[in-house]
Simulated scan of single mutants.
Amino acid sequence: LVTQFGEPKVVVTDKLRGYTKPVQALAPDADHRAHKGLNNRIENSHRPTRKREKIMGRFKSPRQAQRFLPAHDQINTVFRPRRYTLPAASYRRARADAFGLWNDYTGEMNA
């Protein structure tokens, strides 16, 4: 990124001390701001992880969450295909297929 866009003037990271040396090595003249609340796109990329942590807070133990979340993620990926990678018609077809599969599975379980 430094070779493509040039050296940054400011680098914002969270308060992890391990970032200090790499930032100084890659951009020695940049102002390194270690602050949790600043608008940091790198840290915002962890949103799915943070969302899972929030969900985990509703469980009684980390073990219970670890048992639930992998199964939930598999089902979630079936019902929520990545919209930004699909045209609208393909997205609608994928959602219809997912709900069709779900109806078949639940029908078998109730029969």
Rank of each mutant, 00 (worst) to 15 (best):
V2D: 03
V2E: 08
T3P: 15
Q4H: 10
F5I: 03
F5T: 00
F5E: 01
G6Y: 00
G6T: 00
P8L: 02
V10Q: 06
V10Y: 03
T13N: 09
L16D: 15
R17Q: 13
G18W: 07
Y19Q: 02
Y19S: 03
Y19K: 11
T20P: 00
K21L: 06
V23I: 08
L26W: 09
L26N: 10
D29L: 13
D31F: 13
H32S: 08
A34K: 12
H35G: 03
K36I: 10
K36N: 12
L38D: 09
N40D: 12
R41I: 07
N44P: 00
S45F: 09
H46Q: 15
R47M: 13
P48Y: 07
P48C: 07
E53N: 11
I55W: 14
M56K: 15
G57V: 00
K60Q: 03
R63W: 13
Q64E: 14
A65I: 05
A65K: 03
A65M: 05
A65F: 01
A65D: 04
Q66S: 13
Q66V: 05
Q66K: 14
R67I: 05
R67Y: 09
R67H: 13
F68W: 14
P70G: 05
D73F: 07
I75C: 06
N76M: 13
V78R: 12
V78G: 01
R80I: 06
P81F: 01
R83M: 11
Y84F: 04
L86P: 08
Y91S: 03
Y91C: 06
Y91I: 12
R92M: 12
R93L: 08
A94V: 10
R95H: 12
A96L: 09
A98Y: 00
A98S: 02
A98M: 02
L101K: 13
L101S: 09
L101C: 07
N103Y: 12
Y105V: 08
T106G: 01
T106L: 14
E108M: 10
N110E: 12
A111S: 07
